[in-house]
Design a protein around this nucleic acid. Structure first.
Length: 413
RNA sequence: GUGGCUGUAGCUCAAUUGGUUAGAGCUCUAGUUUGUGGAACUAGCGGUUGCCGGUUCAAGUCCGGUCAGUCACCCCA
């Protein structure tokens, strides 16, 4: 009988320990910087009523929401992003939440999309939102937040594109394209990719009159931030964001329907990954969800895309492949209790310690440590026990020292 | 959701126009070395060629389906 080898589902991935060390390291940077900026942690359920999720993102996106009937025949769905679930929280718990409410979430989201480069069906978003503030300073803080996070991860070249839905709508209506605004904006969004001619061809194909297209292009080229957006931009120098890292881009649109004010999109300028972060102001979403009429703004990072770019650009920080610091070698039954005592004492000193479970040749135990990337091995045999000391071997330099427990702890910390 | 390309050992790849028992390097395991690892040498494990079906005397090779990967579009993080 042949054995069936299981497969991982399309667009889903397994992460082995060395990769998890990197992922956890990056995740910790997010937590650290979010909290530095005064955001509070929040989690929401994986599953929501489908009705909570659907109809919030636009028609195209609704097709990508995973929905199914649960055992109780409820129509449910996996969360598609973190914005709608937190907006739901605002609706339900409005009496328990002090405004302005600043929260962050680092959670999985699911999209039933066809996978390709930088696109998965299960991926992590790192989101931060501010509820209950209509101030441009709240929006401006996100540019500073993005700057700090990407700097801390180690990116040197990236750009935060800034635009405003209001500026865009203004351009559209001045051009007399009000009734086709969504389809027109959709094409304009591709300017970077296909250029002015490409966008023009698409608009002509969509039966937009030539004269209006030219008029629109002219307005886009001349567009300036409105007064709200200007106030936002004026905050950035004080928040310590250098000019090279952001720009006003009147052709940047963003897909989701719920944005109402300033919008952001972030690109790593080396490499060819799509946007690694996006967001903006969505003042109407919470009331749409049946909640109070609260203004809101926020951004979400694509965690997995960042990891991909880090690997692509070889920006990997020098991380050990394990968090284990030391391996206590096993010499067999007669040394077992001493070895276990040492293991336990090291752990109590907050030193990540693993014990080699089966007695084996020392050479094999060294080989195990070095292939796992464990930097030290503790040797506790006859000679050491006689002297009440421990031999510690540095796997990298191959040096060995005979130390007392206190000296050992000191040299490891 | 639409279309293209791909799928042979853990990894990278071989295998004449379909033709014996599908090979190699690296990795891995064991030994040389039962208290000293990354080198060297020796030996070994490892595959119903992603899966299912079809054509054929004969399929890794051709055809169909399916699963997975990848790229473009769509859309997005």
């Amino acid at each position: 009988m042949s054995k069936q080898i299981p497969q991982t589902l399309k667009g889903f991935r397994d992460f082995l320990p060395p990769e998890m060390v990197l992922r956890n390291y990056i995740k910790n940077i997010f937590v650290e910087v979010f909290e530095q900026f005064g955001y509070q942690p929040l989690e929401t359920p994986t599953l929501e009523y489908a009705s909570t999720l659907l109809g919030k993102y636009g028609e195209d996106a609704d097709r990508l929401v995973y929905t199914f009937n649960d055992r109780g025949d409820r129509k449910v769905g996996l969360r598609y992003d973190l914005t709608v679930p937190v907006s739901k929280v605002l609706s339900i718990y409005q009496n328990d939440i002090q405004l302005p409410f600043k929260q962050y979430q680092i959670q999985l989201v699911w999209r039933a999309d066809k996978p390709q480069k930088g696109r998965y069906r299960e991926f992590i978003q790192c989101e931060a939102d501010t509820f209950g503030s209509s101030s441009p300073t709240s929006d401006a803080e996100y540019v500073a937040l993005i700057y700090q996070i990407l700097k801390k991860i180690g990116f040197s070249k990236f750009i935060v594109k800034i635009n405003s839905r209001q500026v865009l709508f203004e351009l559209i209506s001045k051009s007399g394209l009000e009734k086709d605004k969504f389809t027109v904006l959709q094409s304009v969004d591709k300017l970077d990719k296909i250029g002015w001619d490409g966008v023009k061809n698409e608009l002509v194909f969509k039966s937009i009159p030539n004269s209006k297209i030219d008029q629109l292009f002219e307005y886009i080229k001349q567009a300036q931030p409105d007064s709200y957006l200007q106030q936002l931009l004026d905050c950035l120098p004080s928040l310590g964001v250098p000019k090279d890292y952001y720009q006003f881009d009147s052709s940047m649109v963003r897909g989701l329907d719920y944005y109402t004010g300033p919008i952001f999109e972030v690109y790593i300028t080396q490499g060819n990954m799509g946007a690694v972060c996006g967001g903006g102001r969505f003042d109407k979403l919470i009331s749409q969800l049946g909640g109070p009429d609260i203004p809101a703004t926020g951004i979400a990072f694509g965690f997995d895309r960042l990891i991909d770019v880090i690997k692509q650009l070889n920006l990997l920080p020098q991380l050990p492949s394990t968090t284990t610091k030391i391996l206590v070698a096993n010499f067999g039954q007669e040394y077992l209790s001493e070895s276990l005592k040492l293991t336990s004492s090291l752990r109590q000193q907050n030193i990540n310690t693993t014990f080699y479970p089966d007695p084996d040749k020392l050479g094999k135990q060294f080989k195990y440590a070095s292939s796992m990337g464990i930097p030290y091995v503790a040797i506790l045999g006859d000679e050491e026990i006689k002297q009440n000391k421990i031999t510690i071997k540095n796997m990298d330099t191959r040096d060995q020292q005979l130390l007392s427990f206190e000296e050992l702890v000191k040299s490891l910390s």
